[in-house]
């Protein structure tokens, strides 16, 4: 299993995901700009921002502890791990037995808890406010995400992402009935977990509404850059995860090198489409009041559970 070409391929894939992640965000922002009749800054803007942030000097609050300085790196590391688990181009990955979908949810939770703790570390009102809201969103989004995965693993009898994707891509129909519910729930979780409209607004610094930005308010320079970059990777991972679960056509099978170029093309196409779709969705919807967010996520959670029920209806 652990052959060198496979490992190399795995490394290339995860590096690709990590480096392309800001591009996806740039693309979404560009699409949004077009939809709103603006010119936009171009899809490469996130790279410029990251570069700028890395160059700056870190300004640290006086009573920031070591936890505060560690958190960006840990977040970046765990996002990298998440990116390595998700099958993006091919389904045979040597890293994938290390963590299944439940562990993937665990990775996201791990990085989130660290960031929330770091936000509380400086001891300003904003930090704890952000941490509290983030945990509020996550304690509902996390079970919903897990239930989505359960839908997929009931069909494929596995919680291993590679096995799931392989089973799903061989399915007769593009979408299993219970996966329709899962897809709706997943979309809602994606929006909530990546701090997008309607749950959070990535472009605001208004204390009444911000969630993610409130947590990172004390961060600057390279720390902020790492956090931003990990957020890009997170969005990218979620998007590729959605593609892998609900539209896995064209993914290269194990050991099939010739399918890789096709898989790359398919992936780029699907990512472009998904980005445009997200931009459209965000343009069309308005941000929810904070206390509507639990309702939104509760709906996602219930939909995913409903999906599980639908699955049992079919087999019984």
């Amino acid at each position: 299993m652990n052959t060198w070409p496979d490992t190399l391929f795995q490394l290339i894939q995860s590096v690709l995901v990590v480096t392309l992640a800001p591009l996806l965000l740039g693309w979404i922002n560009q699409c949004r700009a077009w939809l709103q009749n603006r010119r936009g800054a171009g899809p490469l803007q996130p790279y410029r921002e990251l570069h700028k942030l890395f160059h700056k000097e870190v300004v640290l609050a006086h009573h920031a502890s070591a936890l505060f300085r560690m958190a960006p790196y840990i977040r970046f590391g765990s996002m990298w791990l998440a990116a390595a688990i998700v099958p993006v181009l091919a389904t045979d990955l040597p890293f994938s037995p290390a963590a299944d979908v439940i562990a993937l949810v665990g990775v996201f939770a791990f990085s989130r808890v660290f960031l929330a703790l770091a936000a509380m570390d400086v001891g300003t009102a904003f930090g704890s406010l952000g941490a509290r809201r983030e945990m509020l969103v996550s304690f509902l989004a996390e079970p919903a995400l897990l239930m989505v995965f359960f839908n997929a693993s009931l069909i494929s009898h596995s919680t291993q992402l590679t096995t799931i994707v392989e089973t799903l891509s061989h399915h007769t129909l593009m979408l299993h009935p219970s996966m329709a519910f899962a897809a709706a729930a997943f979309l809602m979780v994606l929006l909530a977990e990546n701090a997008r409209i309607p749950v959070d607004n990535p472009a605001t610094h208004l204390e009444l509404t911000m969630i993610h930005e409130a947590m990172t308010l004390e961060y600057s320079a390279r720390h902020l850059a790492l956090i931003e970059w990990s957020s890009h990777i997170k969005l990218m991972t979620y998007t590729t995860l959605g593609i892998a679960l609900f539209a896995p056509w064209g993914i290269a099978q194990a050991g099939d090198w010739r399918a890789v170029p096709l898989a790359v093309a398919a992936l780029l196409f699907k990512l472009g489409l998904a980005g445009a779709g997200l931009a459209l969705l965000e343009t069309l919807s308005a941000k929810l009041r904070l206390f509507r967010a639990p309702e939104f996520l509760g709906t996602a959670f219930l939909l995913a559970v409903l999906g599980l029920l639908t699955y049992f209806l079919r087999i019984s």
Binding site: W80, A103, T163
Partner: peptide
């Protein structure tokens, strides 16, 4: 069906 390797998990994060 399922597998999980905490050491691997920690290893990847730590090395990154």
């Amino acid at each position: 069906r399922a597998s999980y390797s905490p050491l691997f998990f920690l290893g990847v994060i730590a090395s990154v």
